[in-house]
Design a binder for these strands. Structure first.
Length: 150
DNA sequence: GCCAACGTTGGC
DNA sequence: GCCAACGTTGGC
């Protein structure tokens, strides 16, 4: 069992949108960065995820979700109609992967990036070390520290 | 809207 | 395989 952090732009797909999808969740798509993809491929059903809102007034963690299936090849990468179409992907080698995620809970308040940076015990957190990574691992210890201030 | 930090691409 | 040019992310 592992923990992860997923970034999303609330203007595109927010925690509210995820909640609205209900218990069947939603494919977490559009990951087009190899490092993020490699983390995504390691995800397992039952893994916990922190949902992070980026490119907004108060960037930070807004709630939790749950991985509900095995990662699978991203069908959008092969679909020319999709905005996530990748001309270099083939049926044999799709390059990109998705995983279904469902809403678990909204936190009483956003734990902002600013708060995370000020918190002790999070110095080595992937989110803070590498700002532009949209899928990153969260250790058990980091999860405890963060949920204790949620 | 700016720009720093990276990732990707492609010529050589 | 190097590296310059370019594109993207995302905080501010």
């Amino acid at each position: 069992m592992a923990n992860w952090l997923l970034k999303t732009e609330p203007d595109e797909f927010s925690l509210d949108d995820l909640e609205a999808k209900g218990p069947n969740g939603e494919p977490w798509n559009g990951i087009r960065n190899y490092q993020a993809r490699n983390f995504l491929k390691q995800m397992q059903p039952g893994d916990r995820v922190l949902i992070y809102h980026s490119s907004c007034a108060v960037p930070g963690i807004v709630g939790e979700g749950e991985v509900i299936g095995q990662p699978y090849a991203d069908p959008d990468a092969l679909n020319p109609e999709s905005k996530y179409f990748d001309p270099k992907s083939t049926a044999d080698n799709t390059r990109w992967w998705v995983v279904d995620v469902r809403f678990k809970r909204r936190w009483p308040q956003t734990v902002s990036l600013k708060t995370l940076k000020q918190q002790t015990g999070l110095d080595s957190m992937a989110l803070l070390r590498q700002g532009r990574l949209s899928v990153s691992p969260v250790t058990e210890k980091e999860w405890e520290v963060i949920s204790s201030i949620a």
